[in-house]
Design a protein around this nucleic acid. Structure first.
Lengths: 183, 183
DNA sequence: CCTGTGTGAGACAAAGGTGTCTCATGTGGG
DNA sequence: CCCACATGAGACACCTTTGTCTCACACAGG
């Protein structure tokens, strides 16, 4: 029967997130297929990583779309966004640490669009007075990526409950660790 | 003249942070020495990574010590800690993403001590009422690692000014992105 | 029933990285 | 001045991974 391309990418992402040096053979076995079949669907390791990148970009853009980041209070938009991104975090954590993607100094333009969307959201929050202005939108964007990766990693290692994922990330990103008098 | 072992480790960390798959030859050239000499000082790639791990652990423990995390308000202790860790963040960013270190499922006990120190700091902050209690100490510890790595990455890419590093991380970790009425 | 398509298993050469060795060089200390 | 020692350069075999190929098999559709 025909191989489910997306399911292969899913298992590859899960494996590569844990062990970024996994061989094509390990990736194939993790997907329950043979190395030959894996090669028939993805010309090589590069093609596989590029396909994972495309999948990650597509899911990020879908999440940005679904979260309607240009509507309502920016804080609520961030909450919707993180919730929408949650299923993709394992994949994103892998891609975030795969700095090899930028070696060709020509990073996929999809990332630029996503970065722009996130930066715009934080900028909008600053303009509306919701977010503080001493933390730049670029840093908040970077921090969101980092927290998503950390969260995915912590969940995978069992240090954080999967159910708390969105809450932990959103609350830390928006509210910080300090306790406040008024909610 | 004798090779400066620490300087070799520094340049190796800087290179491997950018390109974790760099070969021994690339590491050697980045350090300005030959592959043969690199091999004389570090038996192999594993030994090199282990040495980097030991260096990272030593610097983290030194930072924990220097920051006196058990003294004064926990928030101030976090500020001192991040400031003390700043010079080590490039190395830490590499080690944080080098999940291969835990393959032998026997992670260096040094990390356990550091984790314990950080967790204890956040726990103390919760107990004193400074930190909110809905974010677990384990998650705050993980988030600190993630933000340090993100920050190091953002600085290396030029997306954040190096001078703002400590401020960006501490303020986001403690205060979050939301603007507050009272300082 | 037959055929075509997709798959698994294995063989194979090529490429790249690794670890070890030798030898020449250059430098600092005695 | 001379010697010991550390280094650089290169050669070498070995190993792992990769990419390709072949062949047999299973299964679904005609």
């Amino acid at each position: 029967m025909a191989v489910d391309r997306e399911q292969v990418l899913r298992s590859a992402a899960a494996l590569l997130t844990r062990k970024s040096t996994a061989t094509m053979d390990e990736v194939a076995r993790a997907a329950g297929i043979s190395r030959a079949t894996l090669h028939r669907h993805f010309a090589g390791r590069d093609a596989l990583v590029r396909a994972l990148e495309s999948l990650g970009i597509a899911e990020c853009e879908a999440a940005l779309e679904a979260a309607r980041t240009d509507e309502g209070p920016a804080a609520d938009a961030v909450r919707r966004l993180v919730r929408a991104m949650e299923p993709s975090t394992a994949l994103l954590a892998f891609l975030y640490t795969e700095n090899q993607l930028f070696e060709g100094d020509e990073q996929n333009e999809g990332w630029a669009r996503i970065d722009a969307g996130l930066t715009e959201l934080f900028r909008r929050g600053q303009e509306s007075g919701e977010f503080r202005i001493d933390l730049t939108p670029a840093w908040l964007t970077e921090a969101l990526y980092g927290l998503l990766a950390s969260g995915a990693w912590a969940v995978a290692e069992g240090r954080v409950a999967r159910n708390d994922f969105t809450h932990m990330i959103v609350e830390l990103l928006l509210g910080g660790a300090l306790r406040r008098e008024e909610p």
